[in-house]
Amino acid sequence: MGRAQTFDTQQVVRAARAVFWEQGYEAAALPALEQATGLNRSSIYHAFGSKRGLFDAAVESYLDEVVRPRLRPLTLDHVAPDALEVYLRGLRRALEDAASFTAAHGCLLINAAGAPIAHDQTVRDTVAAYRGEMRDAVGRGVRARFPQAPDAEAARVADTCAALVVAALALTRVDNAGALQSLDTALALI
């Protein structure tokens, strides 16, 4: 009979998420993951199957605990007319705060899209699904803000705002002022 698990899985995944978010999948060495999580290599492999299994759990945690709560007001049955502005301003505040993890490290999934792990089809599908989820939420915000806009115009504004959000999340690690300008441009559109 195996030993009982003596650690909080969510806490371990969050600790690993911070390492992957900061360093990227490839650079996140097992010793760094062991130190962050407090688990040894065999416990990581027993609980998650592999470093990649831990990464996949970290990505799900990121989506559920970081991305979706921020998008939630844009996905409700009734989206407030100012929901997109509130979302963009909240994201801007997060990127403007030099102490925030997002300002320093951008987006875990956008970072993965530019790394070698993006050659993995599952990662590519996850990044594409994330981008689609974010674009759909932004589209709902645009529709709530401009209920009378023609469909083509609303789609153009939503596509542009979503692209500016992606640009901001990609840029913040190296050009925070440029990231903030991207969000200011999105705010000016709406």
Rank of each mutant, 00 (worst) to 15 (best):
V123A: 10
G132L: 03
C107L: 02
A99V: 07
L95K: 02
I44S: 02
S182D: 05
A144T: 10
S182P: 05
L189R: 12
P69Y: 14
A188K: 14
T6D: 10
L187Q: 06
L39E: 02
Y87G: 04
A137P: 07
E85F: 03
T185A: 15
R41I: 00
W21I: 00
L84R: 04
V79D: 07
A98G: 03
R131S: 09
L108N: 00
R17E: 13
H119L: 10
I110H: 07
I117W: 05
D136N: 09
E133A: 13
V174T: 14
G178M: 02
A152G: 01
A4K: 14
A137D: 09
G139E: 03
L33D: 02
H119M: 07
A144L: 11
Y45H: 12
P69Q: 12
R14H: 10
G90N: 08
D151C: 02
D159Q: 05
V66K: 05
A152S: 08
A155S: 06
A94V: 13
S50G: 08
A158I: 04
A167V: 03
A94P: 01
L164S: 01
F48P: 02
D175M: 08
D125R: 15
P73H: 13
R68E: 09
D82T: 15
V138K: 04
G106W: 07
A57S: 13
R92F: 06
E65S: 06
E133K: 05
L187R: 10
R131C: 06
L164A: 04
L183V: 12
T185V: 12
V157R: 11
A158T: 05
P73C: 13
P69E: 10
R92A: 04
R135H: 14
P31S: 02
A32S: 11
G178W: 08
L109R: 02
P73M: 12
P150I: 04
L180S: 07
P150M: 05
V142R: 03
Q11A: 15
A113C: 01
L63K: 10
Q181L: 13
E133N: 09
A103E: 02
E65N: 11
P69S: 11
L76R: 15
T160R: 05
A99R: 12
Y130G: 00
V142Y: 03
V66T: 12
L169P: 04
S43V: 01
A94Q: 13
S50E: 06
D8H: 15
D56Y: 10
L183Y: 09
L71E: 11
M134A: 09
T160K: 00
V157H: 03
I190P: 01
S43M: 07
L183S: 08
V59S: 05
R156F: 08
D125A: 15
A144D: 11
R173S: 10
L183F: 09
L164D: 01
V12H: 02
I44K: 01
V174I: 11
I117Y: 03
R92W: 08
D82N: 12
N176Q: 15
A154S: 14
L169Y: 07
S43I: 00
D64H: 12
T102P: 00
L91F: 03
A154P: 12
Y62H: 15
G132Q: 11
R156K: 06
A152L: 14
E133L: 14
